[in-house]
Nucleic acid binder design. Structure first.
Lengths: 241, 241
DNA sequence: GTCTATAAATAGATAGAC
DNA sequence: GTCTATCTATTTATAGAC
């Protein structure tokens, strides 16, 4: 009886009772571990902390996952394989068919920014595991990033044949565009969460990055400055200096 | 006598002798620690490993640095304050005065890319400490990154008054440009060191990123495709797919 | 399924000899 | 300045009771 009471205070548990079913507990441990690994990295996260955060004993953690490494791996591919990672190609399938360059790039940018914002831990997790040289990070990069380069590169090549995009290595364009997006998310999530340097809605960011990119690679001159929805960012935001 | 022999095999020591002067040894320890911290992070690097890599006993490490944290701190501000961190503003001072936009942006990009390439450990170190929430990372960001935003933002504002750059929040331009550069370096140093997705010389990368940015923010249309030095990247590189 | 207790290994840090 | 030896705390992981 006393045990239950002490345990209850600890965890932001989904269920009300203390003793939960195996699969449920397993998932709960995984979830609290995600958060801890994301913030402290693999070595910085002790099994003890995980157990405490989950409101169980350490022994329980090892009951569900043979060892720490297995738990980490389970997290990484849970994150990578679950519905979290949406297919970028499908996201803009319609725009691709219409050859609407603006919609393609802006859609991709917006989707990525929204995803990063909704799940900032994923970025941290990936960064940690990349730095630590974990193979799953490498795998994710290989599978996901390469695909973006390939399908977006193919689209750019097609538009070059159409004469709509200048002659340039498509990979450079992809690199530049992804760079703006990733770096912006990194700023928001990691370096400047208070948005002191730049505060911007995802819509606005996607639009501006797309403007810059297309301005730099389109063969046709767009009507700069004249679009009526052009505002200098979400500058009405509170923390602007 | 026997001690010296065992110790000698271990370290890539700068000096030939085993017993070195205090300051020298202190610096040597710091240097091997830089490399270890950069690759394994703070918690991933044990004092034992540092000692081994330096070819001394653990006790020696603690003789020079009171504790692990002090060593880490010493590294971070050695890196941040030493000649490694060049002043970006001075780097393009001449171009700024001439109001040569291309030279300004291309110079900054090239300088940053070269710096990242010559000292890839610094980027890892900074990333690790940012993830770990170390205050010195925050400090470096505050001091260095903010300055770039300020001086480059000021330049952009000036060029907007000149009518040379479109109406847009300068911080967005800085964010986009830095994004391309940082992300490219991150790819080169961390995710894709074999350059499987994109292989590019720093000169070429700086030029292309500048082309894209200026194309997106200049009021005047440049002669795209027609510049004689325009090549589709360093595509002659070996590992291109 | 969950706990307490504990083993076993490793971490950071110190003492004292040379 | 450098080492060996050692201490203490922490960390991963297991055993066995309930």
């Amino acid at each position: 009886m006393t045990k239950e009471i002490t345990a209850l205070g600890q965890h932001p548990a989904p269920a009300s009772g203390v003793r939960m079913a195996g699969a449920e507990r397993r998932l709960q441990i995984l979830r609290v571990a995600v958060s801890l690994f994301a913030h402290e990295g693999f070595r910085g996260t002790t099994t003890k902390k995980i157990a405490e955060a989950a409101g169980v004993s350490e022994a329980m953690v090892f009951r569900h996952y043979a060892n720490k490494e297995e738990l980490y791996t389970a997290i990484l591919d849970h994150k990578a394989c679950s519905g979290d990672a949406i297919d970028p190609e499908l996201m803009v399938a319609d725009a691709l068919k219409r050859k609407d360059d603006r919609a393609v790039f802006e859609g991709l940018a917006f989707g990525a920014l929204e995803h990063h914002e909704s799940d900032p831990e994923f970025q941290r997790l990936l960064l940690h595991s990349a730095l630590e040289g974990h193979e799953l990070a490498q795998m994710f990069f290989e599978k996901f990033v390469r695909r973006v380069y390939e399908f977006l590169g193919a689209y750019i090549r097609e538009r070059q044949r159409d004469g709509a995009i200048i002659k340039i290595d498509p990979a450079i364009v992809v690199r530049a565009f992804i760079g703006m997006i990733i770096h912006h998310s990194l700023n928001n999530n990691l370096w400047d969460p208070q948005r002191r340097l730049l505060s911007l809605s995802n819509e606005s960011a996607a639009k501006h990055f797309t403007d810059i990119l297309l301005g730099g690679i389109s063969t046709k001159r767009e009507l700069k400055d004249s679009r009526k929805d052009r505002r200098p960012g979400a500058n009405s935001s509170p923390v602007k200096r």
